[in-house]
Amino acid sequence: MIHIKQFSYEPGDHESEKASNSYLMSLIAIIAGLPFPIINLLATLIFYVGNRKSTYFVRWHCTQALVSQVSMLFINSVAFWWTIGIIFGDETLTNNYFGYMITAFIFNFTEFIATIYTAIKARKGIHVEWWLYGPLTNLICKPR
């Protein structure tokens, strides 16, 4: 699921710290974003925009953090509105609901672990590319 790869250049210590921070931001967003998934996206988006003019290594990791948040936004939005429907609307607790919530939890948890791991690696200047999000980031984020 996760690959350590050779980045096109050796990132400096300052770059590593910034790249790592984008994952920490993402981590905080996952926790804070559990009740309100839009927070995930906003936090990472703000961080991404702030580092737009940064070096390639920093931009690359900000982008990977961002795209991972976007996919979680979809999964967690469904979970959020479904839950709201049960508490305030006339939806009821069904096997489908529980099945969805557990699936959403597994995906969130996997991302949570991957985010912690990548934050630690990035801090040491090690380049980590995730399954799906890595190739996707390579498509979006090009060196200047």
Binding site: I75, G99, P135, N138
Partner: peptide, 30 residues
């Protein structure tokens, strides 16, 4: 690159709905 991304996207989506379908078969309510 594009092809690799699409393949992985497809697998991930299948994985998500596969897990969802399997987990929805469990009788959580009871």
């Amino acid at each position: 690159m594009m092809e690799k991304t699409l393949t992985q996207l497809l697998i991930t989506v299948l994985l998500f709905f596969g897990a969802l379908f399997a987990l929805q078969q469990v009788n959580w309510v009871s």
